[in-house]
Amino acid sequence: MTATVFWQLVLGFGAISLVSVGGGIAVLPEMHRLVVEVHGWMSDADFARRFALAQAAPGPNVLVVGLFGWHVGGIGGMLTAVLAMTLPTSFMAFGFSRLRARLAGRLWLKTIERGLVPIAVGLIAASGLILARGTATGWLPAVVTACSTLFVWRTDYSPLWVLGAGAVVGLAFL
């Protein structure tokens, strides 16, 4: 990895992270602009493939930036991109966490916290819906998604069971 690429990763992803309200994936279009349009590091199809790979792997969705970094700078590029994307906002979150502890119990803070709860839950549901639409290439994946929804909602068994079942169904029929 050259010094130029290092700084392009640091400044590019660092800047993007600061506007990523709502989650790392909210800024996917910005990432596309940086990686494909501004620097020409990879093609459109490569970008989509890397994103799909990061989605299929476990872990925070934002790790997709690690794959972009990997593409231009190997393991060093991966670490640089991930740290640029996570460190600056981590300090902000930590500062906020301290502030929150100091203000704990204030009625206005409690009101704000409660008011944000439905948005948090609604966005979890939305991300599930988007994932489902991406995978529903026929009736079978849609059935797997529906069964898995019911299983996780109505039982307290570990969701790892449905992931295993999904892998078996994929192996057998897809």
């Binding site: 299929a56 549901a125 819906l129 998604t145 999904g166 892998a167």
Partner: peptide
């Protein structure tokens, strides 16, 4: 296999909500 896991993971996320 990845397609099957992804379909199940989508349901897991919706079920959690």
């Amino acid at each position: 296999v990845l397609a099957g896991v992804a379909a199940a993971a989508a349901g897991m996320v919706i079920g959690t909500a």
